[in-house]
């Protein structure tokens, strides 16, 4: 008798590397086009048409890279921890691979956020770096990514590496709100969050609409980068299976 399935069918299908390879192959062009469109439209809109800030002038325009990068760096960590948990609980190979692919992408986006923040800080605060709560917690997030990458590359067995990094990512996930509040109370200069889900943004719509487009564009770009890495990882790990051999033979 068949066991009762309590997850939708696609969830089980995702566990198959081959099916995942096929579906990402179909989704990849869609996301690539979406990312290209939104990023081009968003960048032109933000740099050429959005009004300048009345205090910061044109220097504020870096917000259109800085804020999406910061949001994405945090979402990427969440995805990594959730994928790690799925890999630990259901022992799903694809989840392990997703978690592994998240770490380098997340680290690069975190450093993009830090770098744009530093460039923005120079004209606004007069220094490249201040020990402020937001900057520090982003720096710690970056360190967490580095720790996860280091652990993953130190362990030779793929399965053990995936499980160990999943545990570390989950411990980090518990710690992230603690870090956030500890540095928030510690020292603060950074302006409050630009976007919250519950309130209307304080900026006029001509300013936040391009920002929204950029955020969507960054997420689409992340999806593209993720799928490219994931497909690579699948091919590499499944290189001995017959379907990959057949694929490579063509």
């Amino acid at each position: 008798m068949a066991e009762k399935k309590w997850m939708p069918r696609w969830f089980y299908q995702l566990a198959s590397p081959r099916w995942c390879y096929d579906i990402t192959g179909k989704l990849l062009p869609i996301f690539a086009i979406a990312a290209l469109l939104t990023l081009v439209v968003g960048t032109v809109w933000a740099l050429a048409f959005a009004p300048a800030d009345y205090q910061q002038g044109n220097s504020f325009r870096i917000i259109y890279i800085h804020v999406p990068a910061s949001i994405l760096a945090q979402s990427c960590y969440m995805l990594m921890a959730v994928a790690g948990a799925i890999g630990l609980i259901w022992k799903m190979k694809i989840a392990d691979m997703v978690a592994k692919c998240c770490a380098p992408i997340g680290a690069s986006i975190a450093i993009l956020s830090l770098a744009t923040g530093a460039i923005w800080g120079k004209p606004t605060w007069g220094s490249w770096w201040v020990w402020d709560a937001r900057l520090t917690s982003m720096l710690i997030l970056f360190f967490l990514y580095l720790g996860i990458i280091a652990l993953n590359s130190a362990i030779e067995s793929e399965r053990t590496a995936a499980q160990s990094t999943a545990v570390l990512a989950l411990v980090g996930l518990v710690n992230i709100p603690i870090i956030k509040y500890s540095v928030d109370w510690w020292n603060t200069l950074h302006q409050p969050a630009t976007f919250t889900l519950t309130e209307r943004p304080a900026m006029p719509s001509e300013m936040w609409l391009p920002l929204l487009v950029m955020v969507i564009g960054f997420y689409c770009f992340f999806a593209v980068a993720m799928m490219l890495r994931l497909r690579n990882e699948i091919i590499q790990r499944e290189r001995r299976s017959s379907w990959v051999r057949a694929l490579m033979a063509n």
Binding site: I140, F143, L151, A154, V171, G172, I178, S182
Partner: peptide
């Protein structure tokens, strides 16, 4: 390696 993993978590 252990310092890389643990130090960020020690900050709070």
């Amino acid at each position: 390696l252990i310092s890389l993993l643990v130090l960020p978590l020690y900050i709070p």
